[in-house]
Nucleic acid binder design. Structure first.
Lengths: 231, 231
DNA sequence: TGTACATCAGTGAACGCGCGTTCACTGATGTAC
DNA sequence: TGTACATCAGTGAACGCGCGTTCACTGATGTAC
């Protein structure tokens, strides 16, 4: 590798780092071409050697941030012993909250309104979002194997339930689609309550958000684990 | 009422209408002072006779849109006979989706990232959000009265569970806080899946969003209604 | 090893744009006597 | 009913701002012979 290529890589990395800094400080609106140039002590036009336009910048950032989130959730989940199935779910749920508290603008980027110039996959899944759901599918398999029966039964095995089954198979998870639906639904619950907390969209006063989150998290467990293992 | 006051009211109404049009067409970013003036064939500065700044504009709009949403959900709920308790829940859930499909930018305004200049209640609840939750609390009371037992039991009656109880009492709903938690959690589930659908934040391919929503909605019912009425 | 040439990172100036907000003003509408 | 004055909706010009993107350029780094 030539030294020119090395320096190019260093700059690319510096651009990503500065982007993350701008995002963390001021949210996605603060991530502008000119602002980024300022942060890097460069002239704005110089950035066009590395990035084709602002949309490109956002796409790179989005992917990185989403993976950060997936890493955090995955790591918390993996830190719990495999046989503590409830604990694994709980760890993942709380990890999303903790990550969001530490990285509010990042949480907002991936969970809030998609940014103006962002043009992620117009069709098909977001890779980093899939990562978390692969984890959930495998967790679902263990939920079943441990004898828990989630409280969801589907009457209608529509196209998407079948799609979910295929997704689980690809993830190497032997799990009924009903369980997956329960898991996915429970995960939406977690994200939904965090939206209320982080965006301050309260319908009534919440004095202790952490305790309130724990309540909702308990409800998510009830949905996924039912009344406990069935012999 | 003098004619001057009448004309003032007409203009105020025109400003609101034009704001709604701009929002519906281009999202909250399209709602600018200058854009609004253009829409009304006015000079930008003229708007400052009616509005103190852009934040004010957004606050007015936000309130209106949130009430629109609450109206739609409430109306769908009220159209179902009181004794059809499951049907009432289902109607409310599907109403949120239908309203969101018809008013994507409006749904985004109240459920997505709070707009830059918006400065809603920094503390305390959003009035229109409370309206829906009052409805949910009363529905919860009927869920219990009908003998359903939601699958949530709380070990910890923390401050917020007590707050939720007070909220229900104020709403005239005789309902255990556990049931409320189940209802609220289930509602977050609904909003959570709609976020994925409307913001295209898929973790795997969803080929039939309507059918997929129905699956998740079924899960929400399972959480709220448990296995059916207990004699 | 030395020279001629090619590459390409970064510069600096400029483009056209839209934004929120201010301010002194005009001219029509409303009010007091 | 008529006149003098006050109110106030809307104008027009200007302020300073930041934005994304283009383009011709300089000068250092890298490559071929």
């Amino acid at each position: 590798m030539t030294s020119r290529a090395q320096r190019r890589e260093v700059t690319q990395r510096a651009i990503l780092d500065a982007s993350l800094r701008l995002l963390a400080d001021g949210g996605q609106e603060a991530l502008t071409v000119r602002g980024l140039a300022r942060e890097l002590n460069l002239v704005p036009s110089a950035l066009y050697r590395y990035v084709t336009n602002r949309a490109d910048l956002l796409n790179i950032l989005f992917e990185h941030v989403y993976n950060d989130y997936a890493d955090a959730v995955q790591a918390a989940h993996d830190a719990v012993p495999r046989e503590d199935i409830r604990g694994r779910w709980r760890a993942a749920a709380f990890a999303q909250r903790d990550w969001g508290l530490e990285h509010p603008h990042e949480w907002t980027l991936i969970n809030g309104t998609p940014p103006r110039d962002y043009s992620g996959p117009t069709t098909g899944p977001i890779p980093a979002a899939s990562r978390v759901h692969v984890m959930l599918a495998r967790l679902g398999a263990d939920v079943e194997a441990a004898g828990y029966r989630p409280r969801v039964t589907a009457d209608d095995y529509g196209t998407d339930l079948e799609g979910l089954r295929q997704f689980a198979i690809a993830a190497g998870a032997d799990v009924r689609p009903e369980t997956l639906v329960a898991g996915v639904a429970a995960w939406h619950m977690i994200t939904g309550i965090l939206r209320v907390e982080f965006f301050r969209a309260y319908a009534y006063d919440i004095v202790d958000p952490a305790a309130y989150f724990a309540l909702i998290e308990a409800a998510s467990e009830k949905l996924l684990f039912g009344d406990g293992p069935v012999a």
